[in-house]
Design a protein around this nucleic acid. Structure first.
Lengths: 351, 351
DNA sequence: CTGAAAGCGCTTACAG
DNA sequence: CTGAAAGCGCTTACAG
């Protein structure tokens, strides 16, 4: 029975000292042997390894973190100020991507949801200042979020997922929302010949909302008067999509194509169109944005722009590791391609 | 400029010593002042608090964890041996519940996906043995998973989500899958008068698969010969649901009701039924299980049993805190109620 | 080349 | 009552 400490819950905890004592060496020697460093003879190294295995020794993350000044963890910070609250399938993709990259480096993932009041700068910084994580991935923050700017400016290793044109010093991974939204709009315009278009925007204090709106307007403008475009403000919620369509139909204005800034709103709009007896895509073609899961399972399936959330998260995490390591720390931005996923809601023949 | 250490990435890190020096006291005094303990005069305490705020001091989690023998974090362990891999909406609900409970106690959440080969006992234990988490929530492990039994037996604070009748020493939170599945089946039997029933099972090395199968058979048996029941084995995947229905229709056997062991399979089955020209619920009534999001958005909406995943996770986490604290550590089980969520796929009039 | 000390940051038991 | 040491577990720079 090794002489060891006990945790708060009374479990025995095996330390390096226990391993060392069993073999009759110092804990320094045990550390070096297990770390593959130093000049420990092959024989004692072997004995130490065996003792460690027998005792079920696993290094204390706290001891190691304190000594190394590095926790071996990264944090995903989820601001609750966002429309994309935890619980949205978007985060499932993000978490999957982060986990994949973190597992490859044997790094822990900390999930940090900031339940604090909005604008609390400390809320962002706490996890990294406490050094429980060596760096952070932040996603879907509002443009108006002041904490984010402070976080980036503080020099903490942070990689953002999304677009942050107002944060030139940030490292970020995202997509070209303007181009993607323009492409979605052009699909209705050019492939389906729709001319009376409506865009239901996202929240305009989020960059994605801003950019997708611009892309829509760009496409209308590029049509040279061939198409007519109107805007309705939404907030990325299913309810907003439903309400937008209801108000649209209520006003009796003509519409043959709707570009929703995301799939949740497209689904809400789809339901409202069906409820009003409008055929999709017969009467109205619709497209969404995201492809996080919803758009595939509705009837009709929603044609959408696929935002590669998992891949963005994986790349962001890999990039974060480089920032933490001090290699490639210059601010930059990675833009991933977006695919048009054709389903039934636009009017394309079923696959 | 305080004299302070630097992290690996070169950031200055404010420690208790920096705070203490600015005020001209020892770090012990600073610790006591900030902790609200000890007999520090109100005046210096005030000064210390101010200094801490000015410097942006946040306690080092490693230093604190090492000293307190407690990390202040809990881990969600996700075995990848499961059908419920990370990326499934189930985990989003679980994470939301864990986060809510953890935030209320200012505890960190670590997401631990075990990418190791199945059966690696150490994979389960590593996170807790390294003391990076004070306890763990484990969910959706296979019945055949040997690591889980070892984990529970090791005495580490663990709370399981799900049913584990073969682990009497475990603390767990779950639902009564047998009763819930029976109730779903009886809904088709009694409310809709369906008599030719089929159950598409989950994987039978998972307790949920086993139990939901039993519930179906119980309902058939209780019908006293009024209804006929058959079984088709699935694995909780959409593809399995589709294939089950295809084989069913291929054989030309009569069926007027299908009880799917989860919603993913129900959706797959629904697609196959539609593709074959069978009306749901006109020709065939179907019910699913879970209600994690999918069943609400399909057409028709899938009638299902709602497994309160978020609530289970929240309760499991609260229970875990009690185990960690040493209060209420006796093995027990909490069973939460399951609601029948009526949608269109069973034949009930639209809400 | 090897053994043992120093110190990461924290909190509390202990000496004065 | 207050000040300063001890020690959590680890790794590596340093003394011998």
């Amino acid at each position: 029975m090794p002489r060891n400490t006990r945790t708060s819950s009374g479990r025995p905890s095996v330390t390096l000292k226990d391993v060392a004592e069993r073999v009759g060496v110092t804990s320094s020697a045990a550390s070096m042997a297990l770390g593959g460093h130093g000049r420990i003879s092959e024989k004692t190294r072997q004995a130490i390894r065996e003792a460690a295995a027998e005792l079920g020794y696993v290094p204390s993350s706290a001891g190691r973190a304190l000594r190394n000044q590095r926790s071996g963890a990264v944090a995903l910070i989820v601001p609750d100020t966002s429309q994309h609250v935890l619980g949205h399938s978007y985060f499932m993709h993000v978490l999957t991507g982060i986990s994949a990259a973190a597992n490859a480096r044997d790094v822990q993932v900390i999930l940090s949801t900031t339940t604090e009041e909005a604008g609390d700068v400390a809320a962002y910084q706490r996890v990294v200042r406490s050094r429980s994580a060596d760096g952070a991935i932040v996603t879907s923050a509002a443009v108006t979020d002041p904490g984010l700017e402070a976080l980036v400016a503080s020099g903490l290793p942070v990689v953002l997922i999304g677009n942050f044109p107002y944060l030139p010093d940030a490292v970020s991974v995202g997509i070209d929302d303007v181009a993607a939204s323009r492409r979605a709009t052009e699909h209705l315009l050019d492939v389906h010949g729709r001319t009376e278009l409506v865009h239901v925007t996202g929240p305009l204090d989020h960059q994605t909302g801003i950019d997708r709106r611009i892309g829509f307007l760009d496409a209308i403008e590029a049509s040279g008067g061939r198409a007519h475009g109107r805007l309705l403000e939404g907030d990325f919620s299913e309810a907003a999509g439903r309400q937008a369509v209801e108000s649209l139909l209520g006003r009796g204005t003509g519409v043959d194509g709707i570009v929703f800034a995301n799939d949740d709103m497209a689904f809400g709009g789809l339901q409202a169109l069906k409820a009003a007896g409008r055929s999709v895509p017969g009467d109205v073609s619709i497209v969404g944005f995201d492809d996080f899961g919803l758009s595939r399972v509705t009837t009709p399936g929603i044609t959408t722009m696929r935002a590669p959330a998992e891949d963005m998260a994986r790349r962001a995490t890999e990039r974060l590791f480089r920032v933490i390591d001090g290699s490639g720390g210059s601010p930059d931005r990675l833009t991933l391609p977006v695919d048009l996923v054709v389903r039934d809601s636009c009017g394309c023949p079923a696959a």
